[in-house]
Design a protein around this nucleic acid. Structure first.
Length: 428
RNA sequence: GUGAGUGUAGCUCAACGGUUAGAGCAUCGGACUGUGGAUCCGAAGGUUGGGGGUUCGAUUCCCCUCACUCACCCCA
């Protein structure tokens, strides 16, 4: 229910409570710990490869994506959140991250700094799609990009880095697909050959593919209709059309993957949906996922920076879908230990306040709730919260200056000053 | 954008077209006023997603709409 209920005579019209926008989700405590663990492992992994974080704004000029992502891509033509700001500028919530990084490099002339141009980022992306499993309107990506490395070995290295991270996340059973989509020199002849092949089987293709045959025959390979797949399987392979340079590059990619011991499948039908890819494309899929089975996808884009009017520097990278990876990851929340403060009476409450601060200052996670409770209720509450210890602060304790500390798991109770009890906690 | 399925309490689910829409878990209170998990008792919680229609009567049947889920498509 999104609308306000209509006024009815005699009826009290109440506004519907607010709700999250379709395709967006709250990440609540209990779930967010997995996100934090993933983010931590991703940083650790990428920095081992000498990547550094680069944070760009959530919105950019619309033109950035029209030029970068590609004016004919589905993403740009029908999935962007575009709006006009008060200054009359057309802005777009980023649907992907790569154009932002390229923009930032040009803007800050990072290519002149001499530092390795290896960047990572994690954050929300926005696409106006119909939500389903593994597909959301605000979703989150981990994005990595490398610039200025022409060698195919770096393409293999980032695939290796992706595997390193997936391994730490406990993701198993993935498959790595690789392909070369050629460059600007070899792609037009291939498209022409595809168009010709498709033309001969036009009657057997689905209506959608018939349309694609003219518009962009590469996209026929994306069709999931079995009949089209079988027909497309007999189409010419890009491998037969790529130029010598692209062929050598692809050969080096496969050789480097072999060196790194990464199993892969050459998938000539693998065509990434963004317009800018050249040479290497790859995807890591998980059969455990469903229709949206792609965990991450990426490839090389040697022309984007030049096309933006920047230096002629090549790029390669990938984007990983955090929601998708988490749905197949095996992550455990880190163990936490909690001290619950059971206070009795007004004086106990005040003393508890100071004691809680003392323990927190010593690095102990400590919870004090201010509602008046009886001792039994305090213990019930502590038990429910899974507290490891209960600190007892009542009149008896304050008179002695020594407090009770009960270990919930063992039931053992110690008695001592706050420093003594801190030592007990640290020892256990 | 296309198609299919599902919407009942915070959660998981009941209720042949027929009394006041129920249960388990969770929540709150009590038994129990300085020591947890258990048990028992009780309370609160619902315009049955919303709107319209059929009917003496609709949670139930029909239509519209919204949301969720899945698939197509696209992609992360």
């Amino acid at each position: 229910m999104t609308a306000i209920k209509p006024e009815r005579p005699g009826a009290k019209a109440e506004p519907a409570p607010p709700q999250a926008i379709k395709g967006t989700h709250d990440i609540l405590p209990g779930e967010v710990e997995k996100w934090q663990a993933l983010e931590r492992l991703a940083r650790e992994t990428f920095e081992l490869y000498r990547f550094r974080e680069l944070r760009a704004p959530v919105f950019e000029p619309t033109e950035l994506f029209e030029k970068g992502t590609g004016a004919t891509s589905d993403v740009v033509t029908k999935e962007m959140y575009t709006f006009t700001d008060r200054g009359g500028r057309s802005l777009t919530l980023r649907p992907e991250y790569t154009p932002s990084v390229v923009r930032a490099i040009i803007e800050h002339r990072l290519d002149l700094e001499g530092a390795p141009m290896r960047y990572y980022f994690m954050g929300p992306m926005f696409r106006y799609d119909k939500p389903q499993k593994g597909r959301y309107r605000q979703f989150h990506q981990i994005d990595i990009e490398v610039f200025g490395e022409k060698d195919a070995a770096v393409d293999a290295e980032i695939v290796d880095m992706a595997h390193a991270l997936l391994g730490k996340l406990g993701v198993t059973g993935t498959e790595t697909l690789v392909n070369s989509v050629g460059c600007r020199a070899c792609r037009p002849p291939y498209s022409a050959a595809l168009r010709e092949a498709a033309g001969k089987r036009l009657a057997d293709l689905c209506p959608d593919c018939r349309r694609k045959a003219e518009a962009n025959p590469l996209r026929i390979f994306d069709c999931k209709i079995e009949a089209c797949r079988e027909i497309a399987a007999a189409f010419p392979s890009i491998q037969d059309f790529i130029c010598r340079e692209c062929r050598e590059h692809f050969g080096e990619l496969l050789a480097s993957l072999d060196v790194l011991g990464i199993p892969y499948r050459v998938e000539p039908r693998l065509v990434r949906g963004l317009d800018y890819y050249t040479k290497t494309t790859f995807e890591i899929v998980s059969p455990a996922l469903g229709a949206q089975n792609s965990l991450l996808g990426g490839g090389r884009y040697d022309d984007m920076m030049k096309d933006f009017g920047g230096p002629d520097i090549c790029g390669t990278g990938f984007a990983m879908g955090i929601e998708r990876v988490l749905s197949v990851a095996d992550l455990r929340a880190p163990a936490r230990r909690l001290l619950y403060v059971a206070h009795l009476g007004r004086a106990g409450r005040e003393a508890g306040l100071a004691l809680a601060r003392f323990f927190r200052g010593s690095g102990v996670e400590c919870l004090m709730e201010f509602k008046d409770r009886g001792m039994k209720a305090h213990f019930g509450r502590a038990n429910k919260l899974g507290a490891d210890w209960v600190l007892i602060v009542g009149e008896d304790e304050m008179a002695k200056g020594r407090f009770g500390l009960k270990a919930m798991a063992t039931g053992r109770q110690a008695d001592g000053t706050r420093e003594e009890l801190l030592a007990v906690i640290r020892e256990s």
